[in-house]
Amino acid sequence: MDRQLISNLAHADHPISAPVSDVNVRTLLDRAICGSSDRLLDLGCGQAEWSVRALSAHGGATAIGVDRSALALNSAGAAARRVGVADRLRLVEGDITEYRSEDKADVVLCVGAEYAFGGLLPTLTAAAGHLTDDGVLLLGVSIWEREPDAATLEVFGVPADEYADLATTVERIVEAGWTPTYGHVSTRSEWDDYEWNWTGSLARWALDNRDHPDAATALAVSADHRDGWLRGYRGVAGFVVFVLRRTSVSPVQG
């Protein structure tokens, strides 16, 4: 079963593809977007729910969303049309590591896509290349809430040093030349809500479409994911979204 289809189905009831509640999404966006005319760039946007909500709340803002999944971008376009912001959202299908834009963004969003750039530090470097000097980066990354065990590492498919605890993650960000101006660490409740929606949405689709050739696979994927969460990384893996600004900016020319 195609991974893009799995992801699209699994996020049907939780289009924010991260363990963050609606209230905290709104707070993070309000902290990141400084002006109504801000230009946003959403790297690895998926269904572009962050951008759609940002544009809905900030009438003059515009956004570009970049993702490899045509299915997710189709969903994003439909969501943008439903709330009347499609004219301010441009969707680009492609590799976020290769995307180039002529204009710098006032806000770059990269939530849960640091793996595409090869980790935290390369993501910060890539984001800086897209930002205005005094721009804002809304960055969502994985952390360890406690030392990962073998079961967690097997589910995530990463070495133990792929992520760090919150304090070390912040330290690395600061050493790379960024200053956090706000942040939100996902709660256990947010994680549980996200995982129940992920596994439940996929399972419901399979049960509602029993004759579909992918139904059995979807149900199995849902069960495997649920088992990996409950018996593996629940309470071990964490997620944090930062609002970041560069500590030093280029001098004004002129």
Rank of each mutant, 00 (worst) to 15 (best):
M1K: 05
D2F: 07
R3C: 07
L5T: 02
L5I: 00
A12L: 08
P15M: 04
I16Y: 04
S17E: 05
P19Y: 06
V23H: 00
V25Y: 06
T27S: 05
L29N: 03
L29H: 05
L29W: 09
D30M: 07
D30S: 13
R31E: 14
R31S: 11
A32T: 10
A32H: 11
I33G: 04
I33D: 03
S36D: 13
S37C: 12
D38I: 04
R39C: 02
L40H: 05
L43N: 03
W50H: 05
S51G: 11
R53W: 04
R53A: 08
L55I: 12
A57E: 03
A57Y: 01
G60H: 08
T62Q: 10
A63L: 08
V66A: 04
D67K: 12
R68D: 05
R68M: 14
L73Y: 03
N74E: 09
G77S: 12
A78R: 14
V83K: 02
V85Q: 03
D87A: 12
R88K: 09
V92H: 04
E93I: 11
T97G: 10
T97A: 13
E98K: 12
R100M: 02
R100C: 06
R100T: 11
S101F: 03
E102G: 11
E102D: 12
D103Q: 13
D103R: 13
V107P: 09
C110Q: 06
V111T: 10
A116T: 10
A116R: 08
G118H: 13
G119T: 10
G119D: 10
L121V: 14
P122R: 10
L124A: 08
T125H: 13
T125G: 12
A126V: 06
A127L: 02
A128F: 03
G129T: 07
T132Q: 14
D133V: 08
L137S: 08
L138P: 02
V141H: 07
I143C: 08
I143Q: 10
E145F: 07
E147T: 15
P148Y: 11
A150G: 02
F156H: 15
G157L: 07
V158M: 12
P159I: 08
P159Y: 09
A160T: 06
A160V: 11
A164S: 14
A164G: 04
D165N: 14
L166E: 08
A167C: 00
V170H: 02
R172H: 10
R172T: 11
V174N: 03
P180Y: 05
T181A: 10
T181V: 15
G183R: 10
T187R: 11
W191H: 12
D193F: 06
Y194F: 15
W196P: 00
W198N: 06
G200Y: 12
S201T: 05
S201E: 09
W205Q: 02
A206Y: 00
D208Y: 01
P213F: 07
D214P: 01
D214M: 05
A215N: 01
A216N: 03
V221I: 15
S222R: 03
H225R: 14
R226A: 15
D227K: 14
W229C: 10
G232R: 13
R234Y: 12
R234K: 15
G235T: 14
A237N: 06
G238I: 14
V241R: 02
S250K: 11
P251W: 09
Q253W: 04
G254P: 03
G254D: 04
